[in-house]
């Protein structure tokens, strides 16, 4: 059994320790937000944050992750509140969404160490492959996320899931049965 911390919780994997962390997360822990795209480190769709660093989970084994702090897209923020998540939605820098979790994790790790990245900092830190072609929006979205992280801008583009019907009714007249 290999013990590590995933999204703040202690987890023990009863699995072949040579299993790539990607598959331990997806198939054993059912954390399916981390995506398989190639299994050999080319596409970065499986990017997660391990001890603060953006890593490709297809290239780390469960054994190598022992004792480390792992954050997946599911644990990046409560209710999609991370500035990168808000900015990606605000700029509509997402199409099919398959590469999005990996991009969000790479960008979040970048902003954690450099909240005011230049375009070349961003291109260096986000090597993720996107076939739909959201690239023209990424630099802008990540710089915008940086401004949010530095508290010079706020965004409210992606509401938290599970909105209470009562709250919805108060905000949206169409959903208010008393209206």
């Amino acid at each position: 059994m290999t013990a590590l911390t995933v999204n703040g919780r202690p987890v023990r994997f009863d699995i072949d320790p040579q299993t790539p962390l990607l598959h331990a997360l997806r198939e054993a822990a059912n954390l399916t937000g981390t995506k398989y795209g190639c299994g050999v480190g080319d596409c970065h769709a499986c990017t997660i944050i391990v001890d603060g660093e953006a890593l490709r989970s297809c290239l780390i084994t469960v054994a190598e992750a022992e004792g480390r702090q792992v954050v997946t897209i599911e644990g990046l923020s409560p209710g999609r509140t991370h500035p990168v998540q808000q900015a990606l939605v605000a700029e509509q820098a997402i199409q099919c969404g398959f590469c999005t979790p990996g991009i969000a994790m790479a960008a979040a790790a970048l902003l954690a160490r450099n909240p005011d990245p230049s375009p070349s900092d961003i291109t260096a830190a986000v090597p993720n492959l996107c076939r739909c072609g959201v690239y023209p929006r990424l630099v802008r979205a990540i710089q915008r996320a940086g401004r949010v992280a530095r508290r010079v801008e706020t965004i409210n583009a992606a509401p938290a899931p599970g909105i209470d019907p009562g709250d919805a009714a108060r905000a949206v007249p169409a959903m208010d049965r008393g209206a």
Partner: peptide, 18 residues
């Protein structure tokens, strides 16, 4: 605004392998 993006940005949007 696109309806699918909030779920796509937090890993909860399911694909066939999810």
């Amino acid at each position: 605004r696109r309806l699918d993006l909030p779920a796509k940005v937090d890993g909860s949007f399911p694909f066939a392998a999810d």
